[in-house]
Design a protein around this nucleic acid. Structure first.
Ligand code: MN
Ligand code: MN
Ligand code: MN
Ligand code: MN
Lengths: 217, 217
DNA sequence: AAATAAAATTAGACAAACCTAATTTTATTT
DNA sequence: AAATAAAATTAGGTTTGTCTAATTTTATTT
C-alpha cells in the first residue's frame, strides 16, 4: 500500500492535525520527524500526487479523506500492538512505543481486527490514548491536565501526553500509572510547580511541565 | 543491526545451507529471492565486508559464525510469530508465512524470548519446522517424506516441505494437517503416484511431487 | 582442444528517501 | 517602507538496493 516513510509522514501529519489551531507547515513536519525541511517538501509532493494530503500555502498541509483513513489505521495498529506488548508479553509502558513503531507497519488486512478481538476490544492503549475502531471511530481523548486542576482537588491519572522513556520511567519511579489517584495540594506561584500527594502518600513536588504532561479525569 | 535486505539475504543463504551438498552460488541465491544475479553479487560484497558470509569461488558462499547466528535468530522469530498468528489470532496455516516474513524483522532484543514464553516454548512451528531456541539449538528437522515410505505402512504427518499457499490450501481441502494419519496403500510404478488413505477414509491418489513435500514420522 | 553454453561479474542506470547549501519567498522588525 | 529574519523551495548529492546490457570467466559439449 504505502512505504514505511509515507506511513510515518501520514502519521506525523495526523498527529499535528489533532493539535488545535496549529498550521501544518513543512518545518513543523520536519521537527516532528527529525528530518530536514527539504526532505519534507519532497514527500509533500509525493503524498499530494497520491491524493493523501492537500497543501495550500495559506492553510498548510491537510489530510484528504483517504489520507486520514490511512493514518487512523496506522494509529489503530500502533495502539493495539502496545496493548499486546504490555498485557501479553509483560513489557513496561516505557518500552513499548518504539517496538509498536515498527509493528504498526505490518500491513495484513485482517491483522488489526484479529489482534483487537484477541485483546478483548480495548478502548485505550497503555498510555491512555484512545484506540481507533475498525470503522475509524474512537473514544474522546483525555484533555484536562494535572496542571489545569484546582488546588485541593483529587483526580485519577487517565493518560500521559509525553510518551518518552525519560518521562515514563520517572513516573514508574514515582509509582504513578494509569488510574493512580493524585491530590493537588498546592501550586507554587513562583514557577507553577505542583505539590501533589500520590495515592495519599507524603507530598512530592513536580514541575509545571510534568503537570501538563499528565492527563486526568 | 542489519537492514531488511541484508536479513532476507542471510535467511536465504541459511536456508540454502541446510540443503545438503548444494553449492551456494550467486544464481542460486538470486533464484531463491527472485532477484537478479548482479544484485546478489553486490550484496555478497556487502555481507562479506560485514563479515557475515565468506565467498570462495570454489566452494561458494558460506555463513560465518556471526552470520549463522544472525540468520538463526531471524528464523527463530519467523517461526515463533507463525505460532502466534495461528494459535492466538486464528489464522490458517496457509496465511501466516507472508505476515511472519514481515514480523521476523522486528528487532527488539527481548521480543523473541518473551513471545516464546508467552506461547509456551513451542518446539515446532505450524508447518512442522523446528524453532531455534535462544541458544541457537533446535530439534532435528523431519526428513522422511511420504514418498519414501513402504507400501502398506501408516505414518503421521510431521511437517510440510513446501509452504506455498497453493500446497497448503490443497492440504486443507484434503483434510491433511500436522498429526494426520496417512496409510500408503499403493505406489503406481508408471509415474510414482501414491494411493493413500487419509485418517482411514477412502483412498485418494496424489502425485509424487505431493508425496515428497510431506514429511512424516 | 575447440566450440558453445552457462554463470559470474562489471558498467552504468534508476527510484526512494534522505542530506547540505544556495536561493527565493514570506513574515517580522525597526 | 526598508531592513532583517525566518521559512520554503530548488539544485545538486549520497546511500541503498535494485535493474539491464555488456563482458569476462568457468563449465560442458562436441
Ligand atoms: Mn513507524
Ligand atoms: Mn501509546
Ligand atoms: Mn523477510
Ligand atoms: Mn513455517
Amino acid at each position: 500500500m504505502h512505504t514505511l516513510s509515507e506511513e510515518n509522514y501520514l502519521k506525523a501529519i495526523y498527529r499535528l492535525s489533532q493539535e488545535e489551531g496549529v498550521k501544518i507547515t513543512p518545518t513543523a513536519i520536519a521537527d516532528s520527524l527529525g528530518n530536514n525541511p527539504a526532505s519534507v517538501v519532497d514527500m509533500i509532493r509525493k503524498l499530494t500526487d497520491k491524493q493523501l494530503i492537500a497543501y495550500d500555502k495559506k492553510s498548510g498541509v491537510s489530510l484528504t479523506t483517504q489520507g486520514r483513513k490511512d493514518a487512523v489505521l496506522i494509529v489503530r495498529r500502533h495502539r493495539l500492538w502496545e496493548v499486546f506488548l504490555l498485557e501479553k508479553l509483560g513489557y513496561h509502558w516505557d518500552e513499548i512505543h518504539d517496538i509498536a513503531e515498527e509493528l504498526e507497519h505490518i500491513s495484513d488486512t485482517t491483522l488489526a481486527d484479529r489482534l483487537e478481538k484477541f485483546l478483548g476490544f480495548p478502548e485505550y492503549d497503555p498510555h491512555g490514548d484512545p484506540i481507533p475502531q475498525a470503522n475509524g471511530k474512537m473514544a474522546k481523548p483525555y484533555s484536562v491536565s494535572l496542571a489545569d486542576m484546582q488546588t485541593g482537588t483529587t483526580c485519577q491519572v487517565a493518560a500521559v501526553r509525553d510518551t518518552s522513556s525519560a518521562f515514563l520511567q520517572y513516573l514508574l519511579k514515582l509509582n504513578i500509572g494509569i488510574g493512580t489517584k493524585i491530590s493537588l495540594e498546592e501550586k507554587i506561584s513562583y514557577d507553577n510547580s505542583l505539590v501533589i500527594s500520590i495515592n495519599g502518600n507524603d507530598n512530592t513536588t513536580v514541575s509545571q511541565k510534568f503537570g501538563e504532561n499528565i492527563l486526568v479525569e
